[in-house]
Structures are given as C-alpha cells and as structure tokens.
C-alpha cells in the first residue's frame, strides 16, 4: 500500500491531525479505486479530532459521523488497518459530545484520542501491531 497511508496513520497517532489529513488527502486525490471512500473516512477521522482539539465539537461530531458512515463497510480490518477500535472510539466520542450538549455532562472519554493500529493476518486470526 502507498506509504502515505502509513505516514498518515503515524501522524494521526502522534496527534498531529492536520498533518495526517494533509498526507491522506494527497493520497486520496490520486487514488481512484472504489475503496478510496475508506481513505476519506480516515481523513474525516483526522479532521474530526483536529476540530475537537481546536474547540469545535460540532465540527468534530459531524466529521466523526461521516467517518463512521464511510468506514462501516470496511470493518473490522482493511489494508492491514484495525478499523473496529477506531470506529468504536469515534462512536463513543460522538456520544460524549451529544451528552455534553444535552445533559451538560463531561465524560472522561472526551479526552481520549484513539490510536490507529496496524495488523497482519496469522493463521486463523489477527495479530495487532502498532
């Protein structure tokens, strides 16, 4: 797979969400296969957490929702990327944002920033690596 996917994931995991989106966007522009929507899902995820870190929970919620929608067809794993944990984290983040708006509560998960894990298949199962 294109090294930009790897680099984008590395930036994402380092919390450099704008940089992650930039790298993945560059790749997304050129990649024309049907599964490019998953690249866009990862971009949405990066941008979502970027907005969260920059005090824009509304933007975050919208982006994470789009990420989940576009990622759902590729769960639990695709391109050696563990999507299910990221998907779950984003769902929780959306819940946290909704609860803060509706109930004015602050869940600790609001502070959680997921890491995207890579994996490769071994006989009968997955081996997760960072």
């Amino acid at each position: 797979m294109d090294e930009r996917l790897e680099l984008g994931i590395r930036e994402f995991n380092a919390g450099r969400y704008f940089e992650a989106h930039d790298i993945l966007e560059d790749f997304w522009r050129e990649y024309r296969e049907n599964d490019r929507v998953l690249l866009q899902a990862l971009i949405h995820a990066a941008v979502g957490y970027y907005h969260l870190d920059n005090g824009n929970p509304k933007g975050c919620r919208s982006q994470l929702s789009k990420a989940c929608l576009k990622m759902s067809s590729y769960l639990p794993e695709y391109w050696g990327v563990m999507l299910a944990p990221l998907y779950s984290s984003m769902q929780v983040q959306i819940e946290c944002i909704d609860e803060r708006w509706q109930l004015n509560t602050e869940r600790s998960e609001l502070l959680v920033r997921p890491r995207i894990q890579r994996c490769h298949r071994v006989a009968g199962g997955f081996l997760s690596i960072s």
Partner: peptide
C-alpha cells in the same frame, strides 16, 4: 462551506 472546513484550500 460549513464550519467543518479545515482550510486546506483544495
């Protein structure tokens, strides 16, 4: 353009 814009300029 919504407030989700990340100012990438594309």
């Amino acid at each position: 353009i919504t407030e989700e814009c990340i100012n990438c300029g594309a």
